[in-house]
Write a protein that binds this DNA or RNA. Structure first.
Lengths: 183, 183
DNA sequence: GAAGGCATGTAAATCGTTACATGATTTA
DNA sequence: TAAATCATGTAACGATTTACATGCCTTC
C-alpha cells in the first residue's frame, strides 16, 4: 500500500475525513482554518481531487437532483487508511516559513535606526492583523467542537492565537530595545 | 525606477549588500541564517544572479588569477537603491507558514488520544531540534555583530530562538492538556 | 592519491498562485 | 432584477526543489 500523498493531497484527504465535501467546500474550509499553516488554491484542489479519486482514495458522487450541480466526495476505506497512515507516519514534519518581516529585519543594518523601528512596528501590526483574523474564527470553531466533537481544530486555533500573541509581544520588546539603543 | 525584485532576488540583493559574495557564498550564508524564515536553492540563486546583473543591480567580477575560478558580485549604485527601496517599501509583508505538525494536529480527531499526544511530542522535538541549530549559530553571529557591526542578523537570531522556545513551551502545555483529558 | 570542501551551473520535475471563463441559484 | 454566493474548472505563469554534471584546490 503506502500511497504517496502530495502536499495538497494531505489537506484534501484530511478535510474530507472531517465530512463529505465539494471542492468549493474544501477551499472555503482551508481559507477559514488551515490557511494559517497550510494553504491551498483552486488550481491545486480540483486537479488533486481527480487524482485522489483515480487513486481510489476518495469517491465523488454527482448531486444535481434539482439543486446546483456539485460533486460531493467522501473517503473510501483505502482513503481512510491512507489518512491514518499519513497522520501517524514517522517521516520528518516539514516546517517552512516565508516571512518577509524577518527577512527585512535581517538586513536592517542598511536602514536608519528610526526606519528599523518603524519596520518592527509594521511586523507587529502584521501579527496583530492575523491575530484579529484568528480570533474571529473562534466562535465558529468552538461551535464545531461542541456540536460535532471536533476538538483538534479548536486546539490548533488556540495554539495559533498563542503563537501570534507571543510574536506581537516579541516585536514590542524589539521596538523598545531599538529605541533604547538609539537614545 | 522601482525595479520589481523576485522573491529570491530579495535575499540575494540583501546578502550582497552585507558584503561582496559569490553564488556559493550566498547559498552557504542563507543556509546558516535566513533559511529559517527565507530559503533559497542553487537552482534559484545562479540564474537570479545573472538576471540581477542584466538588470544592472549587481556587478560580477571574475576572480581567477591563480586561485579557484569564482565570480564575485557587489551592488551597483542602482542595486543599493533598489535594496533600500525594498527594505522601506510599504507593500504587504508576506507571511507564509507550511507546518505539517500543525496540519496533522488539526486532523487529530482521526487519531487515538495517545497517538495525538505522541504527535505533539514529535512537534516539540522538531522545535527543539531547530532550537539547537539556531543556538549553534549564536557564537558566529555574535562575532559578526562585534567585528563587522552587523547587529540585525544577531537580533533576528535572538528573535527566532525566542519564538521556537515559545513553541516548545506551547507543545508542552498541549501535551499536558491532552493527557489531562485522557485521564 | 583520496576525501572533502569550494565553485558554477543546468534540466527536469514539482508545486503553487493568479487570472480567466462559465453558469446556476439564492437573496435583497 | 441585480448582486452575492455557490460551484467547477483550466491555462499561463511563476517559484522552488532535486538531481545531475563538472572540475579545481587543499588537506590528510
Amino acid at each position: 500500500m503506502n500511497v504517496e500523498l502530495t502536499p495538497t493531497g494531505r489537506v484534501i484527504l484530511g478535510m474530507i475525513g472531517l465530512g463529505r465535501r465539494t471542492g468549493y467546500d474544501i477551499k472555503r474550509l482551508v481559507d477559514d482554518s488551515t490557511r494559517f499553516f497550510w494553504a491551498a488554491s483552486y488550481g491545486q484542489i480540483y486537479p488533486e481531487l481527480k487524482r485522489l479519486e483515480r487513486a481510489g482514495l476518495i469517491e465523488g458522487r454527482a448531486e444535481p437532483a434539482g439543486g446546483r450541480p456539485r460533486r460531493v466526495y467522501e473517503l473510501t476505506p483505502a482513503g481512510e487508511q491512507a489518512l491514518r497512515e499519513w497522520l501517524t507516519s514517522p517521516g520528518e514534519l516539514t516546517w517552512e516559513l516565508r516571512c518577509e518581516g524577518f527577512l527585512r529585519l535581517f538586513f536592517g543594518d542598511a536602514l536608519e535606526p528610526d526606519e528599523a523601528i518603524e519596520h518592527v512596528r509594521r511586523m507587529r501590526a502584521r501579527h496583530e492583523a492575523t491575530l484579529a483574523e484568528l480570533r474571529a474564527l473562534e466562535p465558529a470553531t468552538r461551535e464545531e467542537r461542541d456540536e460535532l466533537g471536533h476538538v483538534f481544530p479548536y486546539l490548533t486555533l488556540q495554539g495559533g492565537i498563542a503563537l501570534h500573541e507571543y510574536a506581537v509581544e516579541l516585536c514590542r520588546r524589539m521596538e523598545e530595545q531599538l529605541a533604547a539603543v538609539e537614545a
